[in-house]
Computed example of a mutant assay.
Amino acid sequence: MGATGRLGRAGLALAAVVLLGLVAACGGKVGENGRFGVVYMDAQGFYAGVRAGMQQEAEALGHVPQLLQINAQGDASKESTFVDQVSAAKVDALILSPASATASVPAIKLAHSSGIPVICYNTCIAEDSARKYVSAYVLGDPVRFGALLGDQAAEHFRSVGKAEPKIAVVNCEFVEVCIQRRQGFEQALKAKLPGASIVANQEGATIDDAVDVAERILTAHPDVDAFYGEAGGATMGAVRAVQARGKTGQTVVFGSDMSTEAAQALAAGTVLKAVVDISGIAVGKLAARAADQVRRGDLKTYTVVPAPIELYVGPQQGGAWLTAHPDGVP
């Protein structure tokens, strides 16, 4: 989210179903360079980045395919209906961030049995099934993702002389990558601060849900020293809750997934202290490249394609991100 892996919000709403014909600059016919079925898990900014990255990479490769796209809104049944449609249409590849490690398996199996290569990004189905039905998986190591932030949290609390910080987690653990993010966070945190403790761990993937969850946690644990947001919505919900409850200067946030709002909060330097991120644009480029490699026969067995992970710490790096991303697309 990554929910979802990656679940950050950046203000772009992808329509429930979008049919977008992309035509190469030479003026060819729609679809003459192939067609890709593309599934976005939800309407968050990360997926806008993925779409932009796919378009950029396709243009660089010199043959821009037609994209048949859907925002599945985290709904495995909606995702399944779309996969049925693109499988019947015999697209050249299916590129998706599956809504579920288990419920998404039948749809992906159908695409595979229809002769359509499947490329996962951000999330995927369970590994045993992925090895059977998926050609490539674009993934930023979720354990390392969490560990970078856990290490930074430990450094922060060392710097302020707090050896036993109490930390609350706002999670997106309906997807496996978020569980792995937390595991990495806890391992790195406790390696440096054995006295640190996780006092709460509750789901709040969207900003609105995360605000409510974080406020309830602050009521139950008024002495909590920090929140760890496993995804973008969780991060910014925690930041807003800290501000709303007048805890600025007492409770800090370490979060996931850059967005304009996250970068602004990081630049302010008061609540959000660090953000770890996987660029949607970078993931989109890698997914499009993998789809092209599969189509050309260069990828013949299940392959994990590493996505770069970046850590942003403090006001200066928050401001630099805003300068580098004036359109807000991560």
Rank of each mutant, 00 (worst) to 15 (best):
L68I: 14
N71I: 05
A72T: 08
A72Q: 12
A72F: 02
Q73I: 09
D75I: 06
D75P: 12
A76H: 10
A76T: 08
S77A: 14
S77P: 01
K78Y: 10
E79M: 06
E79G: 06
S80N: 13
S80D: 15
F82S: 06
V83L: 03
V83G: 01
D84E: 15
Q85G: 08
A89P: 05
D92M: 01
I95E: 04
S97K: 08
S97D: 13
A101V: 10
A101Q: 15
A103W: 08
S104G: 12
S104Y: 10
S104M: 06
V105G: 10
P106S: 08
A107P: 06
I108W: 01
I108G: 02
K109N: 03
L110N: 12
H112M: 00
S113G: 01
G115S: 01
P117E: 00
V118E: 02
N122A: 13
N122H: 09
T123R: 11
C124E: 12
A126C: 10
S129D: 15
S129L: 09
S129A: 15
R131L: 03
K132F: 01
K132R: 13
K132Q: 14
K132N: 07
S135Y: 03
Y137W: 14
V143E: 14
R144W: 05
R144H: 12
F145Y: 15
F145Q: 09
G146H: 11
G146T: 11
A147I: 08
L149N: 13
D151M: 04
Q152S: 12
Q152E: 15
